[in-house]
Amino acid sequence: MALGCPVISSDRASMPEICGDAALLASPSDPERWVQCVAYLLQSMSLRQELAARGRERSKIYSWNKSAEGYLDLLASQN
């Protein structure tokens, strides 16, 4: 996402929350859905561009520094 690549992701665990509306989602147990998502991306330049733009914006929410700061804050609050 951060590199501007349209994403197809699993719809399990935290992936829907992380990806938000910036990815197409598919069940790991539904190979036909994965193929369908790839076909959508191949057929639609506008979908590729939209997901790429959303993904770049969405990826700004996440960073290693923010994660580390969150853990440090949590540890500090435990003392």
Rank of each mutant, 00 (worst) to 15 (best):
P16V: 05
D73C: 09
S59E: 03
S67C: 12
E17P: 03
G55N: 05
L41G: 09
Q49E: 03
L25E: 00
S63I: 01
W64S: 12
E69F: 11
E69M: 09
S10D: 06
L72G: 05
R33D: 09
Y62N: 00
D21K: 00
Y71V: 11
I8K: 07
M1F: 06
K60W: 02
D21H: 04
P6I: 01
R33Q: 11
E32P: 07
C37D: 11
S27I: 10
Y40I: 02
G55M: 05
L24P: 01
Q36C: 15
R54Y: 01
A2G: 08
L74A: 07
A76L: 08
K66G: 05
R58P: 00
M15T: 10
R33E: 06
N79D: 15
N65H: 13
A13Y: 15
G20P: 01
L72Q: 08
G4E: 02
A39C: 14
A39K: 13
A23R: 03
W64I: 11
V38K: 12
P16C: 03
S67E: 11
A76H: 06
A2H: 02
S10Y: 13
L42H: 15
M15S: 08
P31Q: 02
L42W: 12
Q49I: 01
M15I: 11
E57D: 08
N65F: 14
E32K: 05
L74R: 10
V7N: 03
Y62R: 01
Y62W: 07
A53E: 08
S10A: 08
L25S: 04
S67H: 09
Q49F: 02
E50T: 09
A26L: 01
N65Q: 14
L42T: 15
L25A: 02
C5S: 11
L75R: 07
L3A: 13
G70E: 09
I18Y: 00
A13G: 14
C5H: 10
S63E: 01
K66E: 05
A26V: 04
K66Y: 03
A76V: 07
V35M: 07
M15L: 15
L24F: 06
L47Y: 01
D11C: 13
E50R: 05
K66N: 06
P28D: 13
Q43W: 13
Q78T: 13
Q43T: 05
R48Y: 02
V7G: 05
P28S: 09
L72R: 07
R12D: 12
Y40S: 10
Q36H: 15
Y62Q: 02
A76P: 03
K60T: 08
Q49L: 04
N65S: 14
L25K: 01
P31V: 05
Q78M: 15
C19G: 08
D30K: 08
P28A: 14
S29V: 14
L72D: 03
R56D: 10
Q78S: 12
S77T: 13
D21Q: 02
W34S: 00
R33Y: 09
L41C: 07
E69R: 13
P6N: 00
A68H: 07
A76C: 09
C19S: 06
V38Q: 10
A13C: 13
E69A: 06
I61K: 03
D30R: 04
Q49D: 04
C5G: 09
Y62E: 02
D30T: 06
K66I: 04
S9R: 13
L42Y: 11
P31M: 04
